[in-house]
């Protein structure tokens, strides 16, 4: 990607357009799509991950050869650790029970979803 010394920053413009579009889609999904809550959460989190990838690859030049492969290697592991920290905390602090904290059903829903994720992480390691 970085080898092409084009005068016109096409990568950046495409990346910018994509990130604005994805933000609008995420906002629309959350605020006016009328999907079930669980689907909204899954959709907009997926959109966020895509946006993060756009920043990393199109703006931050993560694959550039000058820096070897340490950057994307560490970024990959950082995302694994992030998943362990977030999903693991939710899993542990849900205590494995399904009683109501007073926070409503949605909170518990988040707990059981993360529960599956954390299982994947264990295997991933």
């Amino acid at each position: 990607m970085e080898k092409k010394h084009s005068k016109y920053p096409i990568n950046h413009i495409v990346g910018f357009a994509l990130s604005i579009t994805l933000t609008i889609i995420a906002a629309w999904t959350a605020l006016s799509s009328g999907l079930p809550t669980m689907w909204i959460i899954i959709t907009i989190m997926a959109l966020a991950v895509i946006q993060a990838a756009i920043q990393l690859f199109m703006f931050m030049h993560i694959t550039e050869s000058g820096a070897t492969n340490a950057p994307w290697n560490m970024m990959f592991h950082a995302f694994v650790i992030a998943a362990i920290i977030v999903a693991g905390s939710l899993f542990v602090m849900s205590f494995g029970f399904t009683h109501d904290h007073g926070g409503g059903d949605h909170h518990e829903g988040g707990g059981s979803e993360s529960h599956e994720e954390s299982q994947e992480d264990h295997e991933g390691h």
Binding site: I81, I84, G88, F91, V92, S94, F95, G96, D121, H125
Partner: peptide, 18 residues
Amino acid sequence: FVVWVHHFFTMGAGAFVN
């Protein structure tokens, strides 16, 4: 990175978490 709960098994988490 995936064993930390063994320091507080007795905190009251359910059987599955432990």
